[in-house]
Design a protein around this nucleic acid. Structure first.
Lengths: 229, 229
DNA sequence: GAGATACTTCGATTAGCGTCGAAGTATGAA
DNA sequence: TTCATACTTCGACGCTAATCGAAGTATCTC
C-alpha cells in the first residue's frame, strides 16, 4: 500500500524535503529525517519500490527525486487534509550562499550560471537532449566554434562523452559536463571572462564585469535567474 | 499524520468502502475490513479524530461517511499511485434487491421511493432543510393538506419532531421521518395507494397501480430513479 | 419490564517494522 | 596502490500499534 509508505514519519520527512522538485542525496535525506544512514537506505529502497521516488546515480552519490508531479500532487493533498486537523510542517532553507552562483564542478561550470547555461543551450537548440544522452546540434557546433572559440573536432574522447548532464549540488538541477563542459570552462578562463578563486581549496568561480555581460548575451534570460541570490 | 491513518490495511478497506459516498454502519465497515467489532471501533474513532470520516448516530447504529469530496479525491489519488505499482482493489455490489424499492422504516416510507420523495419535496420547496433540521414551508403545509389530506395542526408532538432526515439503509441517503413522515405513510395506506406486505415480519411496501401513478405525479422525476433496480 | 442488537471500553497478547552498530561494496582522491 | 567517502546489507533490539475476548453502555423489540 502506498499510503503506508507515506505514513511513516521518517519517510514523510524525506518526501516533503523532495517536494521542492529538486533531487537530494541519500545522506541529506537521512539528515532531513533525523535518522542514520542505514535506516535511510532502507526507507529509500522502499519508497523506490513503491514508485514514489527514483534514483540517479552520480559518482558515489545517489540523488533521489519524486517520480513525477502526480506524486507531489497527492502529497500536497495529504498535507491539505492534515492541515484541517491542525498539523503543520516547516521547511528549512538552503545553505552555502557563496558557492551557489558559480563554481567549478571537477572541470566544468556549476551553480546558478551552470544550470542557466544548460537551460539556455537547450532552449536555443544548441544541444539535443533525449533522456540521459545529450549531443551537440550542427547549429550548436557552429555556435561553440564562433562564439566560444572551441574546435568541435577536439572534443571527441575515447572514454568520456562530449556532453553529459551533471546534477548540480546547489541547484539540484542539471548543468553541462563532459568534454564540452570542460572546454567551455577553459574558454571562459582563457578569454578572461572568469577565473577560479585564488585560494587553493576554493571552488568559487569569479566572473569579470565584461565576462558576465558576454555570458548574459549568450545565455541570458531576463537576468532574474542570476541575481536571485 | 493523516497518511498513517490511510496506511493501515484495515482502515484503508473501510475508507475505500466509503468511497461510494454512501454511509455505512460500524458493523458493516468491520465486515468490509475483515476485523472484529472492537478493532473496527478503535479504527473508526481514529479516523474520526483525523477528520477523515464523520459519524451520524441513528438509533443503535452509527453511520459513517467521508467528511468531504476532498478526502475522496486524495484517496483516489493514492489509489492512482498504487495502480502504477501493480496493486488493485475491488468493490462488492449491494444486496437485498427486494426491499430496496419501498419499505417501512419504523412507521414511515423508506427505500428508493422514500429517498425520491424527500429529494422531490426539497426540490419543490415544500420543506426547508438546514443542516440536520427540516421544517415544512407554508407552501408545504398547503401541499400536504390538499394533496395528502393531512391536517398540519395534527403533526405537532411534544417529544418528536415533525420532520427529520433519516438515513436509508439501502440507499444510504436520507428519507423523511418524523410525525410528517409517519402521517404521509398513513395517508398512503388509507388512500389505498400502498399497503404493507401481509406477511408479519416483512417490511416491504407494495404500491398499487394507481397509487404509484399518483406518487409519480406528486414526487416523480423522470421515473428513472424508480426503475433503476 | 426482559431480552436482543449495536457499539464501545478495557486489558493482554503479539507481530511487524523502525532503528542503529558493524561490516561490506563502490567510487573518488592522492 | 592506499585512504576516504557514500551508500548498502546484515543482525539484533525495542517499541508501537493492531488485534481480539470479555465486560460495559445504549437503544430497539416484544
Amino acid at each position: 500500500m502506498v499510503a503506508a509508505l507515506v505514513g511513516d514519519p521518517a519517510r514523510a520527512n524525506m518526501l516533503t524535503a523532495l517536494m521542492t522538485g529538486r533531487a537530494l542525496t541519500a545522506s541529506e535525506l537521512a539528515q532531513e529525517a533525523g535518522i542514520t544512514a542505514p535506516t535511510a537506505s532502507s526507507h529509500l529502497s522502499k519508497l523506490e519500490a513503491g514508485g514514489l521516488i527514483e534514483p540517479e546515480k552520480q559518482g558515489r552519490h545517489r540523488y533521489y527525486r519524486l517520480t513525477g508531479p502526480d506524486v507531489a500532487g497527492v502529497l500536497e493533498g495529504l498535507a491539505g487534509l492534515a492541515a484541517r486537523a491542525g498539523h503543520l510542517r516547516v521547511r528549512t532553507g538552503p545553505k552555502e550562499p557563496a558557492l551557489r552562483h558559480a563554481r567549478i564542478c571537477y572541470d566544468h561550470l556549476a551553480g546558478d550560471l551552470g544550470v542557466q547555461m544548460l537551460d539556455s543551450m537547450r532552449a536555443q537548440k544548441l544541444i539535443r537532449q533525449t533522456k540521459q544522452t545529450i549531443e551537440l546540434t550542427t547549429q550548436g557546433s557552429r555556435f561553440v566554434a564562433e562564439e566560444l572559440r572551441i574546435d568541435p573536432a577536439t572534443l571527441a574522447h575515447p572514454r568520456r562523452p562530449v556532453c553529459k548532464a551533471c546534477l548540480d549540488w546547489s541547484e539540484r538541477r542539471h548543468h553541462l559536463a563532459g568534454t564540452l563542459g570542460a572546454a567551455i570552462m577553459t574558454s571562459f578562463t582563457t578569454m578572461k571572462w572568469a577565473a577560479r578563486d585564488p585560494s587553493p581549496s576554493s571552488r568559487v568561480v569569479h566572473f569579470t564585469r565584461s565576462g558576465e555581460r558576454r555570458f548574459e548575451a549568450l545565455f541570458g534570460t531576463t537576468g532574474d535567474a542570476i541575481r536571485k541570490t
